[in-house]
């Protein structure tokens, strides 16, 4: 029983913790399994909140300090949940020389948030992503899994509008 009485896991997300427990069972005993566990945990919870980190720490017997160290080292891990739509501009060199910065400036203006921020509604998070390797389509704008290649700043308001509606 990995979750002791000190574990502060809430009762409202029991299902998610049950899923996490399954993940942990699957990886237990595999060498170097912490990264995959954290990756799947973030997939389940949307973020590695302190509760989640504590749970994993107890279940795997790894000090919380180490888990926190890893969760804050890698840029794909997040401690706070992100918006419903992750809007990111590829900041690879090919996109940069073809105007990714101007695209990003326009997004800051249209969304009213800075890079790395989430809006109050929790709808959009603006990010700068590392090279996606889709250099043939530079500059590339990514909204969750939707790819917009050869995007211009002028096209940004129209694209964002589509995601404001639902």
């Amino acid at each position: 029983m990995p979750c002791s009485s000190t574990c502060s896991a809430g009762t409202d997300n029991k299902e998610q913790f049950a899923k996490l427990q399954e993940v942990i069972e699957r990886y237990k005993g595999t060498k170097g399994s912490l990264m995959p566990v954290l990756q799947e945990a973030q997939g389940i919870f949307g973020a590695l909140t302190l509760d989640v980190q504590k749970y994993i720490s107890e279940a795997l017997g790894i000090p919380l300090m180490d888990i926190y160290g890893i969760a804050t080292f890698y840029s794909q891990f997040t401690l706070k949940p992100k918006g419903k739509y992750k809007v990111s501009v590829c900041m690879g060199t090919a996109c940069y020389v073809r105007g990714a910065k101007r695209l990003q400036d326009k997004l800051v203006e249209v969304l009213g948030i800075q890079v790395g921020e989430t809006d109050e509604e929790g709808r959009f998070t603006l990010e700068a992503t590392r090279c996606l390797g889709a250099c043939g389509l530079a500059p590339v704008l990514l909204i969750n899994d939707d790819v917009y290649g050869r995007t211009t700043p002028e096209a940004v308001p129209g694209i964002i509008e589509k995601y404001r509606k639902d």
């Binding site: 170097g32 912490l34 990264m35 954290l38 990756q39 840029s75 794909q76 891990f77 590392r130």
Partner: peptide, 18 residues
């Protein structure tokens, strides 16, 4: 998990180790 430095061989190995 998004860390460029992991392309460096010793960093990559640390990352494999979790």
């Amino acid at each position: 998990a998004g860390a460029f430095v992991c392309g460096e061989e010793t960093a990559l190995m640390s990352s494999i180790e979790g």
